[in-house]
Design a protein around this nucleic acid. Structure first.
Lengths: 202, 202, 202, 202
DNA sequence: TTTTAACCGAGACGGTACGTCATGTCTTCTT
DNA sequence: AAGAAGACATGACGTACCGTCTCGGTTAAAA
């Protein structure tokens, strides 16, 4: 069901032009220096067409980000080789790599700072990331079942330990997002929630 | 002799009025809706007096935050009762509590999102927090010496594990900043960097 | 078909409000103390609406003056009773009287001093007054044909002699603009360009 | 008696620097674009030193003009060769030539437009020009005694006829200030106030 | 000779207006 | 009905000057 949302007459052409222009402009000038007028001008679109379909610049950018991820849909299953540590390292390294892409960085950085102030936008973003979050939790659960993670572990806390340091370091630029850093975080988090030592028969 | 820096004639009166007005306005209306003009008007000051001494709104807010901490100077020693876990829990709970104060939240939230975009401001902020960061590291080192933390532990990583989840949860409002959450983070981080089991004589 | 010039959508409402506000404010406070912001505020109009259509305050005032004259259009024919001296006295007296009106004085005084510095504005003003100037020249030509003025007279010089003294006295306030003064100027100018004495048969 | 006016301690050095800077800046950028701050900066003088001795920019410019004329003092006697027409032509040509000097033009143009709005300044200027005006009147009186001008002629009106057209043409740039134009004005004015035809004995 | 106070340069201050820019709403005409 | 275009009222931006004010430093008169 790929029917148009919200209207029977919405121009797909304009929608794409707006999101493309947004991506390009934010990459070029940074989130803060891009305004609705500039987007409209670059997209060759009337301002009203933007205001009609999005409530704020943040919402446009959110959709621009969404559109990026929607190229290959449904790839939401995380790797599950049976090796939790290896799989998580791969995921965190990939996340760190994403942040290194200037276009993605500019988009997601602006969006993130907007989320901090706009509750509605934050909710919309949460909806967008819910699936991915669930996939992460699933992978942890799978590891738990495989005895690679304590059965008592609160998976949300594990996720926090894994991703929050990465997020903070990226957002505030307090350090480089190296693969090593990703690995270190995974090792620390898994150590914190290691399964209990099996009692070995002596 | 801490003679006036940068000018021989800067008005202390105006400086304080500006920082006070900034705090009040950001608390009332939120960072984004406060402009230089409003600050100047509320402070009873010409706009140029702000532009003369600060390069951006972010810089003013940074100073407003700085001024908050400078009331009681030099209180930078963190508690060191000998109980690392207990001391850290106290610190994280206190940090969480700070974020609960609406005025401080509004100020620091706006400032933080500005840091994400303004490298110069981020550097200035880093300078401001350097002392506190060092104090935290000191406390961890002290715990290390007391055998409450692995001698191999990278203290910056420990700090990341402790504070980044709190930071992220606060900034993106993805969960409540309860004392329990603070405690959980401390326990997890210490577990991740627990000292090696002493070999017990059998 | 005098369809809208320069734009398809200019607001006549705003235009009139701006010119009215300009007239009122200049009359109240004098040309120099009136700014674009004040005009916009009084007119209930955005500043940009002024900047969009006029290049300078002087241009706005010029249009405000223009609008005054355009109430009754096409009344440009000067009196021509056959008595050149009488007609000119009437015109100069009327001109002097105009300058006595405080609103008109304030507008035209500010405009005039602007003309002295702004070549473009001077050109625009010249265009505005061209018709009137031509009408004056016509009346002189008519007098010339009637033998009341030397056939050799350079009409522009005659106009200078008639109006420049009035202009200077008004602008610099070096004397009162009485009807007597107007009459004196007319008499002097006509004496300077009197037709040659007819050769009387002796 | 060239004692300092208004104060026993006024710095002649600063006074000259201010007037020189004023002349230079007005010549370079035009009257309107020169401000007190710029003059002070160029003169290497504190703003207060200007505000202490002059009430307005116009007053400074007036003094700058005054200083120009005071180089060779007392040259106020107009030529009196016995030939009124020739002498007046010389004076008007000289006046026209003065206006052609860009520095003088810029200064006097700005000053003149200021006079139109500032009564106090106009009075001060009148005082400055009083001597010259009187000299002009004297020359006319001398011509009157020599029978080159009607005994009834109102000399102020004659002066108006002579100089107002020149003034207006210069201020509003409605035509070139050629020697021919000067001559034409002199001839016209003298024709208007020619002495009565002597009754020739038949 | 020493005081002392006006004058000086410098420039920060509270203000006002500038001319530009972007906002979000609106109207008009086109598709 | 939706879109491109862009005028509109609004209001913040950062700059430029205004005229006033303080700050040391420097003179030249008075003591």
């Amino acid at each position: 069901m790929t029917s148009p949302r919200g209207s029977l007459r919405r121009s797909e052409r304009s929608r794409r032009a707006i999101l493309d222009a947004t991506r390009a402009l934010v990459a070029e000038h940074g989130y803060a220096k891009v305004g609705i007028e500039a987007i409209a001008a670059r997209a060759g679109v009337g301002k009203q067409t933007i205001y009609r379909w999005w409530p704020s610049k943040g919402a446009v950018v959110l959709d621009a980000v969404r559109a990026l991820s929607e190229n290959g849909e449904g790839q939401l299953a995380l790797p599950d080789t049976g090796d939790l540590e290896g799989d998580l390292k791969q995921v965190l390294r990939a996340t760190a790599a994403e942040f290194a892409d200037p276009t993605f960085d500019a988009l997601i950085r602006g969006l993130t700072t907007e989320l901090a102030h706009d509750l509605g936008l934050a909710a919309a973003y949460a909806e967008h990331t819910a699936e991915l979050e669930e996939a992460k939790r699933q992978r942890l659960r799978s590891g738990q079942r495989a005895g690679q993670l304590s059965p008592d572990a609160d998976l949300d806390i594990v996720l926090d330990l894994l991703f929050a340091p990465l997020f903070r370091r990226w957002l505030l630029r307090t350090g480089p997002l190296t693969p090593d850093y990703a690995d270190t975080l995974v090792e620390a988090a898994l150590r914190a929630f290691a399964p209990p030592e099996p009692v070995t028969a002596s």
